[in-house]
Write a protein that binds this DNA or RNA. Structure first.
Lengths: 246, 246
DNA sequence: CCACTTATGGTCACATTGACAAAAATACGG
DNA sequence: CCGTATTTTTGTCAATGTGACCATAAGTGG
């Protein structure tokens, strides 16, 4: 059905699957088994199938790589990448998705036997030229995207198990943002944001301190008021990722 | 160069070019000259050329449709659309860009002689099924994107001429958001946001009121503090566009 | 000079925030 | 069993941002 008079490209869907693990932000990576970039770390992904929506492809790839049903996870399109030379095999336009998930037992070795494992984001970002294709750029953008979203949405709860304490949630923010947050003020903010947290009635025990009340994620998606990343101040002319707004 | 063993798609780049005109938000549309959707209004766009980056393609299309050099305009990728049946001719994945510009003299009839003209966004959004392809969805997302960005970035100035008054800037916010803003409080906020506005020294004249000082866009891109859309309050569980975060 | 219009500045009550203190509720060591 | 350390949770206070609203400044047109 594709028309012969129109330039034709392969369309790939790549995934930046993020989680918080061992007090660090991790991303799911695979070791490439084939050329090009054989042996290098890459984001999991694959080509769009003929009768598939982009979102469907992302969910399928996620299921193949992690064995997880993405239905209740958080998978969102980030942006597309189409530099003409980004894949030496030919023209490939890649649609990148970001998925956030709690620290589940393990990424099952993928359906197609590629080795998939968690890698610390900080370490990967420190060596810009070791990734396959332009996946360093994809990862940079994905992390920045996740950081931004934590401020304005209730996304942080997707890094947590179904029931969690406010300290666990605070740890997520601290790790993703690389900052320290005041426990007392953080508590006030998140409990004050309508629809963010729902107390389950349960409490923790055996942690050597006052037991914490357990919470579930509430119905809200946008956060009001937002939880700000920077202690305020400063001229904000920065923007790291190369996809600067305005 | 494209490998035969991989599903192949056409990749299109579509543009939602927004401007403020006659106190309404307008978008640049073309009347489709060919089937499918002949005679219907569509967002301008075209297919990705073999040796072109996505951003380059967006700039090229913008130049073709408006005759404008996009260098100093504001063109950003929104997201991609890839429903299998979105184009009856075959598989087409479309990367949508949003461009914001001041109300320049006119959109020159495009290089390929298609009629390009401004259409009021409100009117287009009111008739969901009259657009070509899924361009109603693209437009919905583009407008929501622009609205969100006004709060947190200095994007609003790109709707204004090089020199503008604070009242003109306020009008941009009011029109894009569909709200009324208090002139006095708005003035306090925008003049207080560091790097947002730079007074040029000039003043208006002949407007039947106190002359306003003229400003240029400042160096800042992010806005601090943000200029909030809603007078506060309310449970924010909404999200209109179908691409809900969380 | 006066009415009118628009821009800009000020006031005040209120909400949000960060820094910090204090209280509550547990574990653990003696 | 008591005191101390630890962690959660609740307050307090000053600084700042915000909305509602009023006042003043500085033009135009009669």
């Amino acid at each position: 059905m594709t028309r012969p008079d129109v330039p034709c490209s392969a369309v790939a869907v790549d995934l930046a699957v993020l989680t918080v693990r061992d007090r660090c932000l991790h991303v799911l990576v695979v070791v490439r088994a084939k050329r090009p970039h054989q042996g290098r770390l890459a984001l999991p992904g694959g080509f769009l199938e003929p009768d598939e929506d982009l979102d469907q492809a992302a969910h399928r790839e996620l299921a193949e790589e992690t064995g997880l049903d993405a239905a209740d996870l958080n998978v969102h399109q980030l942006r597309s990448y189409g530099a003409p030379d980004r894949d030496p095999r030919g023209r490939v336009v890649s649609v990148c998705y970001v998925a956030l998930m709690p620290d589940l037992p393990l990424p099952i070795a993928g359906g197609d036997a590629r080795a998939a494992d968690w890698a610390p984001v900080e370490q990967l970002l420190a060596e810009p030229d070791q990734r396959a294709f332009d996946h360093h750029l994809l990862l940079t953008d994905a992390v920045e995207h996740a950081r931004d979203r934590l401020s304005h949405t209730t996304l942080a709860t997707t890094f947590c198990p179904p029931e969690f304490t406010i300290a666990q949630l605070r740890e997520v923010y601290e790790i993703v943002w690389g900052t320290q947050l005041d426990p007392s003020n953080f508590h006030r903010k998140v409990t004050g944001a309508p629809g963010f947290l729902v107390p389950t009635g349960g409490r923790t025990a055996g942690t050597g301190g006052r037991p914490a009340t357990l919470h579930r994620a509430g119905p809200a998606t946008r956060l009001h008021p937002a939880i700000l990343r920077e202690p305020h101040s400063e001229q904000h002319t920065k923007g790291a990722t190369g996809h600067e707004y305005r």
